[in-house]
């Protein structure tokens, strides 16, 4: 039985309000059978310094990425991972993390690749939970291992590859990196380690909407009206558009993917996880530099 969604009125404005839960809802549902809380952070040790009581940890890098091939884990590894965290196929998974749920949204997107039905984000994430003075603990739970089925990852619906992007020209692209990365002044986010792109700039015609604009200062998502003003207004997206979002390795754009898909209700939004670390190093793909989107490649 699915666990009833958070019926907070402030979520009702969004296209899929069942994808968000509030801290109040989560506090009441800690320990509810069928709910597993998962923390996913940028920093691999942050969970260990204190987390929501009962929450388990899934690390975007060491758990969700294949250690050899540049790809996500396969169905078998995903099944083993989730089973070890006490998650079954029917579990309501509530994800939260640092930095306005940046990495939690990435984990949610990977869960979506595997078709996990009921996966939600804690609005405001880790920082707001702590800022509100709610309980944290360093006690690590030892969930009873359960069976999670081996399901094949579905890469066609919400994931885009380089060739998909090349075939997508003429449709909207959203570049969610910092303005300096977009214009080509630099290839990495300020103060992040160099991840190896040989060229700087953006994919032709991509609009620049840095991912963090979707988050309010307290880490919660901005209101539907504010999001509409950004994505439909400034970025010019229209209902029925096929959209591809990208960043540097696909994590920041997962956050935007969540906003466009679950909060604004766009269908067919894909995340190009190869992103700039692939595009900026690929031979002969078109690139535009400077602050404007540029023209369609001939």
């Amino acid at each position: 039985m699915p666990v009833a969604p958070d019926s907070s009125p402030r979520f009702a404005q969004y296209a899929h309000p069942e994808r968000l839960v509030s801290a109040e809802w989560l506090e009441q549902n800690l320990g509810t059978p069928g709910v597993v809380v998962v923390e996913s952070d940028e920093d691999v040790l942050l969970y260990e310094t204190g987390h929501i009581p009962g929450a388990v940890k899934i690390d975007w890098h060491t758990d969700l990425n294949d250690p050899v091939t540049r790809d996500f884990v396969d169905g078998e590894r995903f099944a083993a991972l989730l089973g070890s965290k006490g998650i079954t196929r029917d579990t309501t998974v509530v994800l939260y993390g640092d930095k306005s749920n940046w990495w939690a949204a990435y984990a949610l997107w990977v869960f979506t690749l595997f078709g996990h039905e009921d996966v939600r984000l804690l609005d405001g994430g880790r920082d707001k939970w702590i800022a509100d003075g709610r309980d944290v603990t360093t006690e690590t739970p030892s969930p009873e291992p359960v069976d999670y089925p081996v399901v094949e990852r579905r890469d066609s619906e919400v994931r885009a590859f380089r060739d998909d992007v090349l075939a997508h020209f003429g449709n909207p692209l959203i570049d969610v990196r910092s303005p300096e990365e977009y214009s080509g002044e630099r290839t990495t986010a300020p103060a992040y380690p160099e991840e190896g792109a040989l060229r700087a700039g953006h994919i032709p015609t991509a609009r620049s909407v840095p991912w963090g604009r979707a988050a309010a200062p307290d880490g919660t998502f901005r209101s539907k009206d504010e999001l509409d003003a950004i994505y439909r207004g400034e970025a010019g997206l229209n209902d029925g558009d096929n959209v591809i979002a990208y960043c540097r390795i696909g994590e920041r754009s997962s956050h935007t993917w969540f906003v466009l898909t679950h909060l604004l209700g766009f269908e067919g939004v894909r995340n190009y996880d190869g992103s700039w670390t692939e595009w900026g190093s690929a031979v002969r793909v078109p690139i535009v530099t400077g602050p404007t989107p540029g023209d369609l490649p001939a």
Partner: peptide, 14 residues
């Protein structure tokens, strides 16, 4: 490298 990922280790190298 395995515990935290090679990518994160770059932070320490830097």
């Amino acid at each position: 490298a395995q515990a935290i990922s090679p990518l994160r280790l770059r932070g320490m190298t830097a």
